[in-house]
Amino acid sequence: MIKTAAFLIGLMLGPTPASAALPVPAAPAAPAAPPLVRHISYVRDGDVYVSAGPAEKRLTTGAGYARPRWSPDGKQLAVLRDGQLWTMKADGTARRRLTTRPAAAPSWSPDGKWLAFASLSCTGGPGVYRISATTGPPEVLFPVDCRSEPLPETTSISAVSSAPASTASVAAASASLVDRLRADDAVAWSPDGKQIAFRGGECDAIYDACLSIGTISSGAERTVAAYGGGSLQNRGFAVLPAWRPDGARLAFTAYQEGETTAQNEPLHVVEYDPRTGAKRTIGTTLDREPAYLDPTHALVTARYRNGSWITLLDLTTGTRTPLHPGSQPTLQP
């Protein structure tokens, strides 16, 4: 059942007494709630927006923007602009380019001093770098063997911009998304600052596509998800990792083409337990780009009204609340 965006108010501000429970319409025409305490940022038609309820503010114009990420103090946004890494204040001012090499979607370190991003590594595949949020050149984090090597010459790297047009059919949109998300190199810094999740890694030597968690201090990597190669007779990808605020779960967007039609898995979101390796699917088909609010709620990009909408997902009940047209959500800390 779809609730109104007022549910999100209760999530942020505290529970609503039973005697004051809000009515639950079947399909809201648009969010209708007072401003929220916390803001979300997202992309629509290649520009960045922020919202704290039904009202929204457009921060950029001219398109070419993708994958905004809030800083830990909530005062800045990191964003891709035409494939380069930029930062700006939460109101869209004071924009500053950090990289001169192509970058994929970034992730802030928990202390806000660094930004991690993916770009070409010395091996010729995607690598993970970090760069100071204020000044300085990038440093290699993964692969660990590239830490002592000169930075490779820059080249293009995949970056996803806006959501598919709202007039596209669900089937066509799904095909387009698969093509664009397959090589998305977004990274995610763990809440304890010790690890980074990223597409590829040492597992690329075995599998056709994979997702890894790397330990920054040692450079060690472990495989979270893998497709094709080795003994695997499937094809697919796992991209866009996102850590739960307590670090106990990692969510990512996945897709699989199995040996048989019955083994096919369209775009969906997987939640992974780093301690046990257990996985479960959350949300529904075509959900993607997870961003946790807390252990029981997340934002995802979902199909709604024949388009892409930022949607609140209750991970316990499956309740879904469409918030705004757009994609690539990130939540202000």
Rank of each mutant, 00 (worst) to 15 (best):
P274F: 09
G125I: 03
S41M: 06
G307V: 12
A159Y: 14
T276G: 13
L240Q: 10
A104G: 14
L181M: 08
P28T: 14
A18N: 08
D192R: 10
V270H: 09
G92W: 14
A291I: 07
P138T: 00
D246A: 03
T4I: 12
A6Q: 13
A63P: 00
R182P: 00
A197T: 14
W243S: 03
T276V: 15
W114K: 07
P110I: 09
V160N: 03
A21C: 08
S161F: 05
R303D: 01
L115H: 01
A133H: 02
P152S: 00
L267P: 07
L323S: 05
T167C: 02
V24Q: 15
E139Q: 11
T87G: 05
R199S: 10
A220F: 01
S19I: 04
G277V: 14
E202K: 12
A63W: 01
F142P: 00
S51W: 04
T155C: 00
S158L: 01
L299F: 10
D273H: 07
A242Y: 02
T284R: 12
T284I: 14
W114R: 10
T330F: 04
D145Q: 00
L77V: 04
W86A: 01
A55R: 09
V48T: 09
S174A: 05
A27L: 15
E257I: 12
Q84M: 13
G201D: 12
E221Q: 13
S169F: 00
G214F: 13
W86P: 00
R305P: 02
T167D: 08
I282K: 05
Q328G: 08
G230M: 04
T16W: 11
A188G: 02
I196D: 10
S174V: 00
S162T: 03
I40C: 05
A55W: 02
T317K: 14
P102F: 10
V160W: 11
V140S: 04
T61M: 03
A172R: 03
D45N: 12
I2T: 15
T276E: 13
S190R: 08
G83C: 05
Y129H: 00
P191K: 13
A291Q: 15
I206K: 15
L151K: 00
I131G: 01
F198E: 09
A171H: 04
R97P: 01
S148L: 03
S218H: 14
P72Y: 05
S119K: 00
S71P: 09
S107Y: 06
D184V: 07
Y272D: 04
V128M: 05
G10H: 12
L13F: 05
L80E: 13
W86H: 11
L313F: 09
L85M: 07
V270K: 11
A188K: 06
G200L: 13
R95Q: 15
A186S: 15
A205F: 14
T281P: 08
E56A: 10
R199M: 05
F252L: 09
L232R: 11
A116V: 04
P245E: 05
S174N: 03
D145L: 03
T154G: 11
L115W: 00
D45I: 03
I196Y: 04
A27M: 15
S162H: 04
P150T: 02
V140I: 11
C146N: 03
A220V: 06
A159N: 12
A33E: 08
S166D: 07
R58I: 01
D73S: 11
V160R: 07
P23L: 12
L240D: 10
P266H: 06
D204G: 15
P241D: 06
R101D: 01
T100D: 14
D287I: 02
Y292L: 06
